[in-house]
Design a protein around this nucleic acid. Structure first.
Lengths: 167, 167
DNA sequence: TATTGTTATACTCTATAACTATA
DNA sequence: TATAGTTATAGAGTATAACAATA
């Protein structure tokens, strides 16, 4: 039985869903539910400010950013797939689109000719830079009601969760 | 320019993706990315321990829980759609499946005969109870490396994010 | 034999638009 | 006219399996 401190001054006894006004009940303490609910405003912001204007999906943005950031090392499709927890055929499709748009290039590895060496183009860098600026601005609004310390703590705790390996 | 304290003792200068070992770079401070990464272990746990064994999708679980929790009031399809940020046709499909399995019932509203009064069945209650127990156990493992205080703070900060309205 | 990446295929989920029945 | 819910249809995204090239 998880013991819980009796006083919990900041929250009401029954929390309501942000939209619809339904009682959340036991959902209140479920991480998966809380993550899904928190993802609603971030997804909305992404779609409206980046996805629409720059024609970029969240995965595409993340791939571009990872390829850019790891220019020094060899980024392969398999590595990207592992980092994003998607399958390699999925990565292939995204890379097809990014390459068609001239945002990344694929070249065969010199040592192991099976692998792809992914590189971001100048155009790709400009696009991902624009997207990043828009997302940081959106984050400022979404995290408006959190103090600087709370923002740092939230990101660090999310990182801790992401590092968990499940058996 | 967001000023940041120079010392940040707990994290390395360049954070790596939990899988694949790629440098995250600017992604490190992006809420959407951090939420997506944190969702990887929770989704995996859900699929393996609840989705598979109980044949239940995350949305289905959440709908069941909301209907159960709000038995006193009239839960309609539109309310559920708002709470979960999905369209009403989407809710209709999920309710079709839940009703076919005998987990919820739909009855016409007495006052406004356009609305559906959603109710959870005995079978539905048993299923959602089992799912909830499995998810709470999974959460304990996922949040293993967080203190009790950190867990509470994480959930509260996620709730704050979920309450944000984006313009 | 194992691994990288692709192609082929099918499935799940979601969205938009058009419809019905009630209000 | 407006709203609750459904049906019809199409699209986006993802997964599995089979394959080609290389190790």
């Amino acid at each position: 039985m998880a013991s819980r401190k009796t006083s919990r001054s900041t929250a009401p006894a029954t929390d309501l869903t942000p939209q619809g006004g339904l009682a959340e009940g036991a959902l209140r303490d479920l991480l998966g539910y809380r993550l899904a609910q928190a993802t609603i405003p971030t997804t909305k912001a992404f779609v409206e400010r980046v996805g629409g204007p720059l024609d970029l999906r969240p995965v595409e943005f993340t791939i571009l950013q990872l390829v850019r950031e790891n220019a020094a090392v060899t980024v392969t499709a398999t590595t990207v797939a592992k980092a994003l927890a998607v399958t390699t055929p999925g990565v292939t499709i995204w890379l097809d689109r990014l390459e068609e748009r001239g945002l990344v290039t694929r070249t065969r590895g010199a040592v192991d000719r099976r692998t792809q060496h992914l590189r971001i183009t100048r155009k790709g860098q400009e696009l991902v830079s624009s997207a990043l600026a828009l997302l940081l601005e959106a984050d400022r609004e979404i995290l408006k009601h959190l103090s600087e310390g709370e923002r740092r703590i939230l990101l660090e705790l999310l990182q801790k969760v992401a590092r968990t390996r499940i058996g």
